[in-house]
């Protein structure tokens, strides 16, 4: 798809073709972010498909995906650029030993000795790119402030080289699990999208695309049970969409045609990954409620 010419309907269709099942409202928001040339800030619980938006966009527009995985302690050196110290030292040694021609100090700080990290790579790319800044809520506020310049003007300043401006405006997707609030400054520069867990109907459609071998009946039963589990506040970690897909596949692998009580008992650990959550669901919802009603 041409990044300069696309419509909402075209984008919606392209998302579906890539196996990303979503509401049209989500596509309208993505469309607006792209058209306005603004970063898209996607918030939501873990496992609802935030990161996948970046991946799907790169496939839809045939653009390179550059991913910056955020974590506590991430700094400019790891996100933007670093000088290749080894290469610089080697060059100095060679010159000292007389193996190299004369060299000025500024040569040591030229593009040849620059190690590009994801952000700089994005800015300097000549082809369309999707920059995925994943789990931005994990970084410190100082790093967020550093992102301001990049996300508002799409340029970065390197003291030794000056200001580098993007050759084209990249598609930027930021994701956050809302572990902490993102600063107002960063939010202001983004178009905002919140993704919640899917409804039963939507999850059935996702299962039919991602695990077609499960069939409609089993997909519906799994989606219904997953929805019941997620509605319970007693559990610590709600199952992600990928876990419901795994559950459907596991049931198919066990030869289950329907979500029986027996099948629930044997496979609940595919969906819930800790003992307390399993016990809480068994106690508060019950295996019987999760299982499908037997066929009349």
């Amino acid at each position: 798809m041409d990044p300069n010419q696309f419509t909402i309907d075209g984008l919606y269709k392209a998302f579906e073709e890539q196996g990303y099942i979503c509401e049209k409202s989500l596509v309208v928001t993505v469309f607006l972010a792209l058209k306005l040339g603004k970063p898209l800030l996607v918030e939501g619980a873990p496992g609802v498909g935030k990161t996948e938006i970046g991946k799907v966009l790169s496939r839809v527009f045939d653009a390179q995906l550059i991913r910056l995985q955020c974590y506590e302690g991430l700094d400019e050196n790891k996100a933007l650029y670093e000088w290749n110290y080894q290469k610089q030292l080697l060059r100095i040694q060679l010159q000292k030993e007389g193996f190299s021609s004369d060299m000025a100090e500024r040569d040591l700080f030229s593009a040849e000795y620059l190690l590009e990290r994801p952000l700089l790579k994005t800015i300097r790319s000549e082809k369309p790119v999707v920059l995925l800044i994943d789990e931005v809520d994990k970084v410190e506020e100082e790093f967020e402030a550093f992102l301001f310049e990049l996300l508002s003007d799409f340029q970065v300043s390197i003291p030794e080289l000056g200001t580098i401006t993007a050759r084209q405006i990249p598609m930027v997707v930021l994701t956050s699990n809302r572990e902490r609030d993102i600063s107002d400054g960063l939010k202001r520069r983004c178009v905002y999208l919140f993704i919640d867990y899917p409804t039963v109907e939507k999850e059935v459609r996702i299962l039919q695309v991602k695990a077609p071998e499960a069939g409609e009946r089993l997909s519906r039963e799994v989606a219904r049970a997953i929805n019941l589990i997620r509605a319970n506040e007693a559990i610590g970690k709600k199952p992600a969409i990928s876990e419901s897909i795994d559950w459907a596949r596991a049931l198919v692998a066990l030869g289950a045609e329907s979500l029986s009580q027996e099948a629930v008992k044997h496979t609940l650990n595919i969906v819930l990954k800790n003992k307390e959550d399993i016990e809480a669901i068994v106690r508060e919802v019950g295996v019987k409620a999760l299982a499908a009603a037997p066929k009349a």
């Binding site: 049209k24 409202s25 919640d196 109907e201 219904r224």
Partner: peptide
Amino acid sequence: EGYADAGSRPEEAGGGPVSA
């Protein structure tokens, strides 16, 4: 249909979930 709110809880959307 078509524009089900992306931010709404499952309970709020059509075809709603099963409440415990």
